[in-house]
Every structure is written in C-alpha cells, then in structure tokens.
Amino acid sequence: MTAAHGAAPAAVAALLMVAVYLTAARRLRHRGDAWPQARDASFAAGGIALAAAIAVPPPAAPFTGHMAQHLVAGMVAPLLLVLARPLTLALRVLRPGRVRRALLVVAHSRYAVWVTFPPAAALFDVGGLWLLYRTPLFAATHHLAWLHVVVHLHVLAAGTLLAFAVCALDPPRRRWSLRWRAGALLAAGAAHAVLAKTLYAAPPPGTTFATADLRAGAQLMYYGGDLVELALAVTLAVQWYAATGRALAADRRRNSVTRAVRG
C-alpha cells in the first residue's frame, strides 16, 4: 500500500474506530459493567497497527515491505481487533432502538451463520490470497488504483472474518464446534504455508522482484503466519481449558452434594 490512494483518510478511519471503541468501553464501565482493560489495549493495538500498515511506508525491499503490510493488515490487526469482542461491546452499549436492532438482524442472520462457518471463512481468506498471488491479479493492482484499494480491503475483511469465525468470541447465532474451528485453522494455515513456499520459488505472474527480496518476503509470510496461527491456536486452547474447567467444577459440586446427602 503506497501512501497515495486515500491512505491518510483510511489511517484516520482506523484511529477513529479505536476512539469509538474506547469511548464505548468507558461508557460501559461508567454504568458499572465490567469490561476488562485488556480488551481496550487489544483493540487499540489492532487499530494503531492497522493505521501504521496503511500509512507508514515499510523500510524494506518492495516485495518484503508489501508482505509486512499484508501480515499486519490481514492477520495481526484482525486478531487483535477480534480479541477485543467489538460486537459484544456494541450490543451492550447501544440503547434499544433501530441501530441495535439492525446490528442484531445482521449478526443473527442465516447469511452470517454461513459466512462465519469456519471453513467458508478460511476459503474467503486464503482462497483470496491464492487468487491474488497466483493469477495476474497482483500485477494488475500495480496499474489500477481502485483494484489496489479493493484488494487491501478484502485482505483486511477476510482476515477479520477468519479470526472472528475461528475465535467465536462474540455471541453468534450458531457457535461452530471446536473441531470445525481447529480444522479450518489447520487448513488455512497449511494453504498459507504452501503459498508462501511457492512464492519463494516464483514471483506472482507478471511481476519481477529481486531474488533476495522475493525470498525474504516469502519467508516473512511463512514464519509471520506461524506466529498468528499460534496465537489463534492459543485462543482456542484457552477457551477449551476454561469450558472443561467449568464442567469439572460443576461435576465436583454435584459429587460433593451427593456425598453430603449420602453421608
């Protein structure tokens, strides 16, 4: 993303989004609701990272720099934003009315159920990346400014969708099981790793990059992807640990009640 095509307004929009979140969280706490500070920090970090990826030209060779921006805009920032549960916050802070109702209609629509079906989200995200880097699409984004913007919006939106679907932190109409979510994470991670390795060997069709640049960019994609996948996996693991912990505690309570009754 060069600093040309509307980068400044986009970066400002990302920072505004952070301001809205922080204001909403403060209002919630003011009302007496609990809302962990960690979520504010996560959302702020995500928004600032996104704004930086949009506005700051990376100090690296062209392909590596592009990959660094993609990594932040498509994987790191989406995860940080999703971990802050923005939908939950919006539903809690909005007063009953047209906006809240509309948000609920969209969030609980049948369409949303299928879009957040983890394998579908994985396909949108990594399938889009394969289209970008393995067809002349990537070369075309260098000539058409609007296509450049559309591609980056897709990378951000699809990355956010995948993180949203895998983490399933905000209340969905249907919560897909851990198997579906972990399976989609595995498939998406594998497709991402394979794509990175093919980029190491050959640039996207219609482009030429210095070999060292191409290889550094591909390795950044591979190992950078690993870090975000690890973070997603840890999120799933923590959810599982907490859920089995609740079941265990309930079981212990039941056991102690039966013992007390018997004894």
Binding site: L186, G189, A190, V234
Partner: peptide
C-alpha cells in the same frame, strides 16, 4: 502440500 499441513499441525499440536 504435506509439508504445509505438517508444519501447521505441529503448531497446533504444541498448543
């Protein structure tokens, strides 16, 4: 393909 799958599976296996 197998390398990509295995590599991601290792990450998930660790967690």
């Amino acid at each position: 393909l197998s390398d990509g799958l295995l590599h991601t599976a290792e990450l998930l296996a660790l967690v």
